[in-house]
Computed example of a mutant assay.
Amino acid sequence: VLRFPAGQLPPVSEFWSITMYSLPQRLLVANPINRYSIGDRTEGLKLGADGSLEIYLQHENPGPKKVSNWLPAPAGPFFFVGRLYGPGQSALSGQWQLPALQERP
């Protein structure tokens, strides 16, 4: 899970995205929902009750209540790239950083 606490979404003037790639091929990941990236332009993203945003980077569908925030991953190794278009000063200075992935049971 990539969790952005409330008020801590990427500081951009344009848009941001997270794109999934398989390893070792370094290719986009074919998946049943045809989603290769997720970001602020993704329709239907759901914030938590506390205003946080959780993105599920995993191979298996996380279920109907979470699928809107799912970025499908391959069954094996992967990497993702976070892109900030029009990054704010806090991102440029390193004050804001992409959160670390959290493993959830």
Results as ranks from 00 to 15, higher is better:
Ala73Asp: 04
Val29Trp: 01
Pro10Met: 14
Pro87Cys: 05
Pro11Phe: 04
Leu84Ala: 08
Gln8Glu: 15
Gln8Lys: 11
Ala73His: 03
Pro105Gln: 13
Glu54Arg: 12
Pro87Tyr: 10
Trp96Phe: 04
Tyr56Cys: 04
Asn69Tyr: 04
Thr42Gly: 11
Arg83Lys: 03
Gly63Phe: 03
Phe80Ile: 00
Asn31Val: 08
Tyr85Arg: 06
Ile33Leu: 09
Pro62Ala: 08
Arg104Asn: 08
Gly51Asn: 03
Ser37His: 12
Leu27Met: 14
Asn61Cys: 00
Leu101Phe: 04
Glu54Trp: 13
Ala75Glu: 13
Gln97Phe: 07
Ala49Trp: 10
Leu28Gln: 11
Val81Tyr: 00
Glu60Ala: 13
Phe78Pro: 06
Ser93Asn: 11
Tyr21Met: 13
Gln58Ser: 08
Thr19Met: 09
Ser93Arg: 10
Ser37Arg: 14
Ala91Cys: 04
Pro64Trp: 07
Asp50Phe: 00
Asn31His: 09
Ala73Trp: 03
Val12Tyr: 12
Arg41Ser: 07
Arg41His: 08
Ser52Cys: 01
Gly44Ile: 14
Val1His: 07
Gln89Lys: 10
Gln95Ser: 11
Gly51Ile: 03
Leu9Glu: 09
Gln58Asp: 00
Gly7Val: 09
Pro87Asp: 05
Ala30Trp: 10
Thr42Asn: 06
Ile33Thr: 14
Leu9Tyr: 01
Gly7Ile: 06
Gly88Lys: 05
Val67Cys: 05
Tyr21Arg: 14
Ser17Met: 03
Ser37Ile: 07
Gln95Cys: 01
Ile55Ala: 05
Val12Glu: 15
Glu60Arg: 12
Leu57Gly: 00
Trp70Lys: 02
